[in-house]
């Protein structure tokens, strides 16, 4: 299960092709592509598994839920973990 490390509500602003997110915990501003930004917002209210995240985001983006899609979600989750914005429990 993945959950947010950063306090909620998330301060995230979408600039069409990418987004900026301000982490109130560290004072850092992060430049994110839209997929990881979407994942952060999804985790704002509750922890979720990687599979749940992939399914919900696929529906929201009208994208087929394929193995490649799950891989891209896993990569985004790795990236967010490396930025210390989320943690895996």
């Amino acid at each position: 299960m993945y959950s947010l490390n950063t306090p909620t509500p998330i301060q995230c602003v979408d600039f069409n092709t990418h987004a900026f997110m301000y982490d109130r915990r560290t004072g850092e501003t992060h430049y994110l592509s839209l997929l990881p930004a979407e994942i952060l917002l999804l985790l704002e209210n509750q922890s979720r598994s990687a599979h749940d995240i992939a399914t919900i985001v696929a529906e929201a983006c009208e994208h087929p839920m394929t193995e490649e899609w799950q891989t891209s979600i896993d990569k985004a989750l790795d990236g967010l973990s490396q930025l210390d914005l989320i943690q895996q429990q």
Partner: peptide, 17 residues
């Protein structure tokens, strides 16, 4: 910008938009 924290972020993204 670092001193103004979340409020500065909001102000500056607002200006850019």
């Amino acid at each position: 910008y670092p001193m103004t924290m979340g409020r500065g972020f909001q102000t500056l993204t607002g200006l850019a938009k």
